[in-house]
Every structure is written in structure tokens, then in C-alpha cells.
Design a protein around this nucleic acid. Sequence first.
DNA 1: ATAGTGTACTAGTCTAATTAGTACACCTAT
DNA 2: ATAGGTGTACTAATTAGACTAGTACACTAT
Lengths: 137, 137
Amino acid sequence: MLPFSLTVRPGEPIVEQIVYAVTRAVVSGQLRAGDRFPSVRTLSQELKVNPNTAQRIVALLVEAGLLAVEPGVGTVVTNHRQPTAGGADAATRRSDLAALEERLAEPLVVEARRLGIGLADLVEIVRRQWKRLDQSR
Amino acid sequence: MLPFSLTVRPGEPIVEQIVYAVTRAVVSGQLRAGDRFPSVRTLSQELKVNPNTAQRIVALLVEAGLLAVEPGVGTVVTNHRQPTAGGADAATRRSDLAALEERLAEPLVVEARRLGIGLADLVEIVRRQWKRLDQSR
DNA sequence: ATAGTGTACTAGTCTAATTAGTACACCTAT
DNA sequence: ATAGGTGTACTAATTAGACTAGTACACTAT
């Protein structure tokens, strides 16, 4: 049994979907700092995915600062956004924020307006999603 | 000169990017109801894209309820989300809302938490993006 | 030593996006 | 009516990216 829930959406890159599923599990508290993460080979079998693909997933999660490698042992869930935990320097942080605004926030606002949803309702939707992540803990 | 601004992001489907650019132009008021939209062949030339691709863009925008076809004449920007304007029945609307929550709102919240951004700050970001669309009018 | 861990590398396969080319039905001017 | 504009439909070829396949290496715990 994998320590995170996953519903595959055919047509979109499997790697991104899994990375997102793990990220959601971490930020919602389903995976906590210190928890051991499945090995590349285990991931490969459970997800029925190529070892190479599983490796790329782990690498991306390490780069994102959600997993830490203990050489020869395995990977562990980290306390993300900890002081100098990952590679989160000032410049990285600034570009991350810019990406969040451009790739996530703006498209959300655009789609909301297309559907005729007002700002107040949109904010309420965001608040609800935020609390939903807390509840799944 | 095209009636919308576009910055291509290599690696992502060109069709989606252009559809998004037009959608943003419409919901921000840069394109208003009644404005004529460039023909498929004009689009093809200006965007340096295959006529087939341009046609698919127009088709998607019509399906989204942003453009209306005047047979033999061309396409016009519609007053989107008008009573029974597009194909926006109750069921479509419900699934559109669900997609907005799952594909846009939740990922935004997840990424915000990954970056250590609080709910209040996130809401402020959404508000700022909303107003930014008004200013670009 | 043995078996587990992450990592690296080169090919090959497979699928989706885009391009290419042609054709048709429609409308509006000249 | 004829010429030139519009959106639409269709099949085929090409391109690009994601994923798979297979092998090998350095490291660590037991």
C-alpha cells in the first residue's frame, strides 16, 4: 500500500501526476517529515511504471525539497521549506512565486471569469480547497 | 496586428496557449462582444501556424462560447455566459465548476502550501490577479 | 558477501500534437 | 454568375515528447 492516493488521468504525463499526488499528500499532512518513502524499485512495481520513470519521480521530489536522500538507505520525507532545507534560495523563491502567479493564479482567475464566477465566490472556493486539505489529514 | 497578446511557451501545446490567450483577452475586456475575430487563414499566417491548427483554435473558442460563427462571413466575439448563449446547460456548468476546483483551485492551493504561502497571502494574490485583468482593459 | 538503496547512460517504442494537402458548402460583393 | 472571402471536413505524413527497456555503478546496512 502506497502512502498517498492517486487517480490517474489518462493523457497527461504520469510523472507529473504522481509528483503532484505526493506533493498533495505532503502539504496535507498525510505524509509527515521523517516518514520513509518507498524505494524506486517498489514505486516502480506498485505504480506499474518503469524503474526509470520512478527514478525521475523521486529526483523531481528531491529537487522540490519534499524528499531527502539518505545514501545507500533510501529517501525520507523532509520538513519542506525549512531554513536552507532544499535549494530554496532567494532567487529560486522569487521565480517560484512568479510561476505560481502566472501558471496557476491567473489561469484560475481567467477560467472563473469565463464561467461568470465573481471574485467573492472565487475566494470562497480557494478557502474551501484550503480547508479540504486540512481535513484529509 | 492580432487583437490579443501572446507569449509562446515552448513545450506546451500551441493550440491551448492561443485559446488561453484569446480567452484572457475576452474576459479582461480587450476583446469585446461584437468585435470581429481574425479569419482562420489570417490567424494561420499571423501565428505562423497550420490552417488546420488555426481552425481547431476557432472551433474550441466557439465551443467555449467565446466566439460565434456567422456562416460565410466570419466569426465574432460573443457576450459569453449570456442566457442560453453557448451550450451552457446546468450539467455542463456543474462539470465546469468541478473542473475549475480540481484542475485549477486545488493545484494552486497545493503549490502555495509547498512554498509556505499562507491562506491570507494566497487570497491576496488571487485578488491582485483579478484586478490585473481589469487594468489591462 | 549479499542484498538493498539511489543514480547514470544509451536506445528503442509509442502516442499525441502539429503539419500537409485537398475539397466542400456557405455568403457577399462585383 | 462569378470571383473571392468565410468556416468545415477529411486522410496522411511528420515531429516531438513521454515512457519503456536494459545494463551498470557507487553506496550502506546486515
